[in-house]
Design a binder for these strands. Structure first.
Lengths: 192, 192, 192, 192
DNA sequence: AGCTAATCGAGACGGTACGTCGCGTCTTGAC
DNA sequence: GTCAAGACGCGACGTACCGTCTCGATTAGCT
């Protein structure tokens, strides 16, 4: 047990919640330490005691929110598994969670350290889950091959999310699942 | 003919160049109207006379740099054409141009109007060129199918550039070109 | 003429006035750049553009106020002149002006640079006037002798103002004027 | 007998010493409860348990140092006694003791209650000693006359210490002793 | 040549937020 | 009950950019 008065954990939650609320209600630019402090009644100094700057609070707040990721179902069919996972991912990203992911990336593109942390704390999970789905059926892929297939599956999804040239609908993710499955099968053939 | 003292066009170039320099030398956060003004000796008012805000300057400054896109060679083979195009794209994005693309997206994610403009003035060109490559071989695709294939090709590239910060090497783009070609062929079969 | 938009002089006056008002109404501790800014509608940055910190604003504000010093009457009699001057000084210091002088000294005792500036911009004037009164009658004093007599006259006044918080009444200043006069006369005798 | 763990008296001394050290080494502004706590390893709460606020600690810390006052020698001659006493006072105030006296006054000017306490616990002693010297030779002065003479003697000294930051040398204090003696003699004459 | 009008540099200005500091209070577990 | 540790609300500090504004000084085309 650490000495001294313990931190009030409710504060952390309140701050993160306030940050999320500010984002969804007044847009990304409305998130400020000042506003979070005023909104929650938490002293600014207390916020800075827990997060060394604004970015860190935002990261923490959104990672919690964004970590709600679909479980990887196991239907026995790779394409079916991929289709389900990508559909769920799309559904999630079409909701508020997409907004927060975009916001996080807005920060990430301005600060590579932040992006690195974002990847390690958050994005990696989505990748891992996808990789596991693939690995269930294809056990002999090299790491490079796995990475390629994951990029092939997630790349177009993020591309649409960030650049927003087209909607993330079922037709899109299903087609994507189909192509990734075929690509995996082909790689398997080449390897053996 | 407008009356009064004409604008000094050298200023526009100087400002854009300064913005670029600030980005590459001190990182994205260093780009500020204040800094551009001070760096170039141009008055802030002059900058605001030409660009209505910081984002607009950044768009203008980087779009030139970011617009440099590979020509679409025509070898007769779709996979070969894609391979060439994606390799050249990767080469470009591995240079400074990747940095500026990231900067533009950083702004785009904070302002959807800006993103729209960015898409229409800049990103669309890369897509069009890719679409044309595909269209040369596959003339009967619906727009949705074309869009899907372009997303399948560019998605993973952007994903690595923006999100994963992973290397865009030949192995990657070649594999990508291969899968896109395969996907196109399959779509053709299904359609007919 | 300096280039650029000229400063709005009304701002300086408003800020100084607000500082004085805050002092007299809510006490010395109430003077803050924050409060002055809010009170006057002047942006904090504007205040800091004119005064490099809180102390400087306070000094400037009070020097204006405190410079209202009694003129040195010339009755032909040294004691009479001294009596008049010290009475007027006492009257002034018994008013608001005494409060501001105490406030300035509170700062001065915490920062010797500030005290130096305070002496040079403000306190010196009181001394000069007294020295002139003495010099009219005694033209052959050394600088050291003059300094001594001025200290002899002003020391007890400041002592009561700052330390003793004792009344500065006519009985006191008259007695003081009398002793300073006798001291001057004696010094004259010794010198010749 | 109080119950529970007894206070560690070494702490009080350590805190006072730290305050003094901060003053002399880094200037008045460096004295903060925060710094004293960190410097000594004493918890802030412990400090506040012993002194109700910063001022009180400062008073307690410096009053010991500031209390060192010259004894009042009795040579039989008033002027000689005054000369000795003022010389010794000057010597003391030229040392560290002058710095601490300035620090105490800096606090006193911001809080009249504090000033009152400072006078009663500390400054009064110097006055009393001087008054006693005078009283030995002049037994019939009213309290007002005594007060005047003490102010006449100490005023210029404090004035130089606090306001003028001018040297307290023998020439100065001797001249002062001489004038105070003369003033006393004259008052005696007038009274009788 | 003189007039008109937009340009330019410089920099003041109101705002909003930043991240830091010190105050005095409170809350732990250990002694 | 005291102690070290440190969380906490509060209020101010001085700084950084934002985008707007107001100056005097250029610098053209139009009369």
């Amino acid at each position: 047990m650490s000495i001294g008065r313990p931190r009030n954990n409710a504060h952390s939650d309140a701050a993160k919640e306030a940050a999320l609320q500010l984002l969804t209600e007044h847009g990304y630019a409305a998130i400020s330490m000042e506003a979070v402090a005023q909104h929650t009644g938490i002293a600014k100094q207390t916020l800075y005691r827990r997060w060394k700057n604004k970015r860190d609070l935002i990261l923490d707040a959104f990672v919690d929110d964004a970590n709600r990721m679909p479980p990887a179902a196991d239907t026995g069919s790779l394409e079916e598994d991929l289709r389900l996972y990508l559909r769920q991912t799309a559904t999630l990203l079409n909701s508020n969670c997409g907004v927060t992911n975009r916001a996080l990336m807005a920060e990430g593109l301005q600060d590579s350290d932040f992006l690195k942390e974002l990847r390690e704390r958050h994005l990696i999970k989505r990748r891992t889950r996808l990789r596991d789905i693939i690995r269930r059926k294809h056990t002999h892929f090299t790491e490079e091959q796995e990475t390629f297939l994951v990029d092939l599956a997630l790349g177009p999804v993020w591309y649409r999310l960030l650049v927003q040239n087209a909607p993330l609908n079922d037709a899109f993710t299903d087609a994507l699942a189909h192509q990734v499955t075929r690509a995996a099968r082909e790689l398997e053939t080449q390897t053996s």
